[in-house]
Nucleic acid binder design. Structure first.
Lengths: 311, 311
DNA sequence: TTCACACATCGAAAATACCGAATGATTACA
DNA sequence: TGTAATCATTCGGTATTTTCGATGTGTGAA
């Protein structure tokens, strides 16, 4: 019969290996040295290997001890984080840390998160935006609860995450009011020799649009690839070029960036994803967000022809 | 006086939350239900919060319990990995898991690792190659001990790693024997209108060479960007184009790929890095590798002019 | 050598982990 | 509806472990 290992012993071992000696650790733990000495001996006996080697009147880690300490470091770092974040106040229960890929239109994000905030008045929301890759690693180490992104989670890093589609929209092309009006007439041929601002070079949207342009035999000069969708729209607002944005948020785009829809890029969609850590499949917020997204989908994801637009 | 928390209690809590009930956990732990029940009550008392809520005759996790379980999952996953890898045989002590960025010339890697293997006959070496980004995340979760790469660790993911330069070399351009001989004469002007194969688009080497070509007013057609350095060289061997490789390994390149050095790209260097987890600064292998790299540096990192080459 | 220091060992105490028996409450099923 | 099975818990007693004081041993410094 093999007994379970005693994690308190392992904790003592960790304290000693950090303090450098049993004597120092005993002070930190409010115990006497002989107690700790005995406990560690028991752990060594259970493991069948020495953790420490006596060097002079000092204890030094054995090879095995050194390896074990690395695991202990990780383990008890988590334990301390657990106690720090959950002892005392209860805000951690009501704080939702959401990562937002900077390629996402902010008005869409608002649309997704607003109902959640409104439904439960004492939720604290923390938003962090950045590139999907950065945010994914944050998600993996529990610094984030959710991640909203325009690209599905690639598991090239072997992180355990779930990816749910929460929205889909056709892409429209926008330009300043008078400019858009000119281009609407002969869309999409009118785009020829126009200037254009696109999202990041590696984004699926950017690639899809470039493919579409090629397919339509349109020759446009792409003046810039911009990772941040807000910045891209700001460029467009300044008249630097035509820019794409989801049809789904055309009203927002029109009013806040003073532009008009020229037309719709046929057969090009942008999808949006909610990425959650594997463990959290039954999380309250995520499920609510998914439900809401699914509801919205049926009513709002309607393709629009350029003729129905106005400004 | 606040007592330390009892990690064995936490372990019982984890077992119960996994098993779904105290009854099932008690079987797995070879204990009676009342024991576990009492221990968990003690833990709850110590924490000042309920972990479970009675729902019928079942226990369900409270909000606080759910959060705590996530920490427990992480903690004891590490603990189990610790026991799995260190119990039983002692090979873990002698197994060095090295990640190798696929952009690295394999002959350089061999050169670095060979002396280590030879010096200690019972070392087991495990090599894993892939993109630096993938390997970095592996390093962070202890799946790798070291990482050899041609790009320094960018800490855009907030992983705790150390980065040491272990080598540096000028870049040379290579082509098939007869082709190289033709081009040597008027190098670098002779490169005009030649075809070229380069490493990955985002690699510093690739960028540096493209910049250099521009600077020299050379117009070459880049037929391909290849992430894997071996594949790039294979392309070059097939005569698809001129390709770059470190001067440091010119002899290897010449013999194994049946090509000759055309000339050296002035002022373009490639550096090589050893990336280690923060915890492992005093690791035996790493220090030895660093020492050896430093020794090699003084003798081997000599720039070579194209005139001194032969084939 | 002597002293101070650090860890280990021993034996007794206090603390606690554990179990058997019994209770109450819930669910499954006849 | 009633009965049996299941599950968590409470209580009291026992076994084990944890802890400490006293003591021993080896080390390094004065």
């Amino acid at each position: 019969m093999i007994t379970n290992i005693n994690y308190n012993h392992f904790y003592y071992f960790w304290m000693v290996s950090n303090a450098g000696s049993i004597a120092k650790a005993s002070k930190a733990l409010h115990l006497t040295p002989q107690t700790i000495s005995a406990q560690i001996s028991m752990l060594e006996q259970r493991l069948g290997k020495q953790l420490f080697i006596r060097k002079g009147r000092q204890l030094v880690l054995s090879d095995y001890g050194r390896v074990s300490k690395q695991y202990a470091d990780d383990m008890f770092a988590i334990a301390e984080e657990w106690l720090e974040t959950t002892q005392g106040n209860d805000t951690y229960l009501k704080t939702l840390k959401v990562g937002i890929s900077d390629a996402l239109p902010k008005s869409l994000v608002t649309r997704w998160l607003a109902p959640i905030i409104n439904s439960d008045s004492n939720i604290k929301l923390t938003c962090i935006d950045g590139k999907q890759e950065e945010l994914l690693s944050q998600l993996a180490i529990h610094k984030l609860d959710l991640l909203l992104s325009d690209t599905p989670a690639d598991n090239s890093y072997n992180l355990k995450v779930f990816c749910h589609e929460i929205g889909k929209s056709n892409i429209g092309l926008y330009a300043r009011h008078h400019h858009a009006r000119e281009l609407q007439a002969d869309f999409p041929q009118s785009l020829n020799n126009q200037r254009m601002v696109l999202p990041g070079k590696d984004s699926p949207t950017s690639r899809a649009i470039e493919y579409w342009l090629n397919e339509q035999h349109l020759n446009v000069s792409i003046v810039s690839h911009v990772d941040d969708s807000a910045l891209m729209k700001a460029f467009g607002k300044q008249g630097l070029g035509i820019f794409p944005a989801p049809i789904l948020i055309r009203d927002d785009v029109k009013t806040s960036h003073e532009v008009s829809l020229i037309g719709q890029v046929s057969n090009v969609y942008q999808s949006y994803y909610l990425i959650t850590p594997e463990r959290m499949v039954s999380d309250t917020f995520s499920t609510r967000l998914l439900e809401q997204a699914r509801m919205g989908e049926s009513t709002e994801n309607s393709a629009v022809s350029p003729s129905t637009t106005d400004d």
